[in-house]
Amino acid sequence: MFCSGCGQALAQGQPVCPQCGRPAAATTAPPPLVPNLAFEVATYANRVRALSTVWFIYGGLSLLLGIVGLAFANSFLNGNGFWMRGPWPHGNFPLGPGFGSAILHFAWIMVILRSGLAFAAGWGLMERAPWGRVVAIVAAFLSLLKIPFGTALAIWTLVTLLGYRNTTLYDQL
Rank of each mutant, 00 (worst) to 15 (best):
L63Q: 04
Y58P: 00
I112L: 15
F82L: 12
G116Y: 08
R49L: 07
N74Q: 12
A71S: 13
L63W: 03
V54T: 12
G122E: 04
V54G: 01
G81C: 06
L51H: 02
V48S: 03
R114E: 05
F106N: 08
P97C: 00
I67K: 04
G79F: 10
V54A: 15
V68P: 02
I103Y: 09
R85M: 12
P87D: 11
G96I: 04
L104V: 08
P87H: 08
G98T: 09
I112V: 15
L113W: 03
G66N: 05
A120K: 11
G69C: 11
G96E: 07
L95K: 01
G100R: 09
T53P: 00
F82V: 01
S75C: 04
F82N: 12
S52M: 05
V48Y: 02
S75Q: 15
L113M: 15
P89V: 10
A71T: 12
L65I: 14
Y58V: 12
L64V: 15
W55R: 10
I57D: 00
R85S: 14
H105V: 13
N80H: 11
G86K: 04
A120H: 08
V48A: 05
G116E: 08
F82M: 09
L65Q: 07
A121P: 00
F93N: 10
M84T: 14
G59K: 02
A73C: 07
R85E: 12
G122D: 02
I57S: 03
A121T: 01
R114C: 06
G91Y: 05
G116W: 06
A71H: 05
H90Y: 11
L104F: 09
A121K: 01
R85V: 08
G66H: 08
A71W: 08
L104P: 00
I103Q: 09
G98C: 00
V111C: 08
G69S: 11
L77K: 03
R49D: 14
L113N: 03
A120R: 12
A121F: 01
N92T: 04
A102V: 04
L113T: 10
L117Q: 09
T53K: 13
L61C: 12
L61N: 06
P89L: 12
L61E: 01
N92H: 14
S115L: 07
P87M: 14
F56A: 10
F93K: 09
L64N: 01
N74V: 02
F72Q: 09
N74R: 10
S101P: 01
W123C: 10
F82I: 02
